[in-house]
Nucleic acid binder design. Sequence first.
DNA 1: GTCTATATGCTGATAGAC
DNA 2: GTCTATCAGCATATAGAC
Lengths: 206, 206
Amino acid sequence: MTTNDTMELRIREVAQQLFFRQGYASTSTTQIAHEAGCTQALVHYYYRTKENLFRQIFLEQVEAALNVIGRSLCDTDSFEGFIEGAIGIYFDALKANPRLPYFVLEELVSNPERRRYLRENFVKKPTYIMFYMQFDALVRREQQAGRLAHVEPFDILMSIASQTVFTFLVLPLYQDLLARTDEQVNEFIAHRKQEITRMVIQGLKP
Amino acid sequence: MTTNDTMELRIREVAQQLFFRQGYASTSTTQIAHEAGCTQALVHYYYRTKENLFRQIFLEQVEAALNVIGRSLCDTDSFEGFIEGAIGIYFDALKANPRLPYFVLEELVSNPERRRYLRENFVKKPTYIMFYMQFDALVRREQQAGRLAHVEPFDILMSIASQTVFTFLVLPLYQDLLARTDEQVNEFIAHRKQEITRMVIQGLKP
DNA sequence: GTCTATATGCTGATAGAC
DNA sequence: GTCTATCAGCATATAGAC
């Protein structure tokens, strides 16, 4: 809830919170203006259209998410250590931004236009391709040394992504149906991180 | 695209398709009427409000999903066989209804009212509680016999659910970014089913 | 049961005063 | 840069004719 000095940034910040909470369709520029403390006209003065405002936020968030993924491929001395480190980085990033997975998923699933947008802006990026190549090489090396089951690198990524992302997707449900306090939610996240790490490592043994 | 004889059912069927594709907020009763081949007034004549129409569909879908979960707890002679059977049942059900996970997730996440509705209508149901108790007993038995790692039953369910659900959540993305044909999509699903089964079973070894 | 017509409200976006 | 005023469009919902 950092109060920005300029109204332009304040609008954007409020918009992000609302888009995260409610999605694009259920958020109006009137609501954004009201929560930012200005009139609806001003939102359009700065960002022209609602779609344009959303795009800036969406782009920024996807970029941030991909940066986190890029950062996770650093420590490669032992494979188990790498898996543990990567999952740790994902969990830390998502704990600071728990709504991110749902936000990105929702918009990508419900709007084909957004998928086109993603493909044209990111899939071609070298960061992304390099990440996959490095990961692929690492996995093959471990497999040839007999330290890893013969699983496709893609499936390893899917396994990690599914379980990590899912934890945060269902957080509102967990919070509402099973948890009572914030402390319990934190414990849930920490516990899932530990269990996912264990399961993935054990699941990849030859 | 089964054409129903009564307009009442036809409206409901069309509404379900549209809610699945676009979610509640982005679907209008006018659009439902148009695709059903009647006027918008008729939609309200039968279902009074849009919210009411949605609730009926949502309730029905959640019920169907829980029934699938209930059915998965039948074959309990060997634990590996049980895991394989359960994942098989989930995948078959979701392949026939691939949009279900996103539909349910979206409404539960973006609308707290829906979570309250879920809690009051389902969590108290004996089917659900019995499922968990039976599963819990099965896991503890296997663990005491030394055939299973000491993982909480809840975490096993999370692992299976994450990976199964995630497969279908990202299906539109896979379809758009990586697959070319329907055949490739089917292969992806079949492949993931196999890999998830393998990973879960291997991940649970002591 | 199905229609037309209409009420009422909210939406995104723009024009123009200050 | 921020406001007020206003537009056209579409939303949900209802009333009433047939």
